[in-house]
Amino acid sequence: MFPPIANPKAEAITPKFGEQDLIRRSASSITPAAKRQTEVAKLIDVSKCIGCKACQVACLEWNNLIEEVGINVGVYENPHDLTPNTWTLMRYTEWENPESGNLEWLIRKDGCMHCEDPGCLKACPAPGAIVQYSNGIVDFVKDNCIGCGYCVKGCPFNIPRISKVDHKAYKCTLCSDRVAVGQGPACQKACPTQAIVFGTKDEMKQWADKRIKDLKSRGYQNAGLYDPPGVGGTHVMYVLQHADKPQLYAGLPDNPAISPIVELWKGLTKYAGLTAIGAFAAIGFLHHIVSGANRVSDEDERNAKRLAGGSTK
């Protein structure tokens, strides 16, 4: 068992990180915090998950969210997808393992992965609407969000959702408010099987190693850690029984990275675009200085008069 995080003390605790610990801020140039805090991570061990949805409930409860009553269409997912109120969702996959012939129930807790290189933050046009703390948590700042949906396009995991009510983007915060006072995320606290554990990223990797060894000893030869390098690693990691096939787990991307289209849009297009606009304006200005105005001469007017004079109008 992973040692549980102690309950908080009754007296007020000063938050352990805040504005001064940012390493990235959307649409702003900031000096990253000089000293990085210890990176934190949430480890989700899919092999230990029993699909009880306690994490989903804990998330709603801690974050004071209320999900609409939905419609049962005969699947386990409830609601059917992530929503502005459902920041984490259990996704259920029934898979018949061709090697063992066993039916495997793969249950993945979906939600923000807290990428080290966050695509949402890269795409965001609103200064300070998305921030990344030096401990790795990527957070949305509601007051700065303008509801454009660019984060949706930037995210390689299809996580952010825009509210139809207040037109703001929502996703898992990794319970940054709880982590700031030394607690783990609400989902982790609620998990009855320790399928979700929380700690420093190093601790989580070590813990994952133990779990992977255990799984391998039980015949899961391809068990492994999902900490995709394409996004610089994540601060939410999975232990997968079949780490060679992440797609099995309700379409978890095999090798996620910020889309090259987004890179082009936020990279070359941005700079080349403004340069082109500036160049057109500058050329116009220079042309006018060099060649002067193109004026109608008196002769032109006389010619027009001669021509129009013959008219009956």
Binding site: V296, S297, D298, D300, E301, A304, K305, L307, A308
Partner: peptide
């Protein structure tokens, strides 16, 4: 002006 039309769009004029 007619001169403008003569100079730039003569066929139109």
């Amino acid at each position: 002006t007619g001169g403008w039309a003569w100079r730039h769009h003569r066929r139109w004029l």
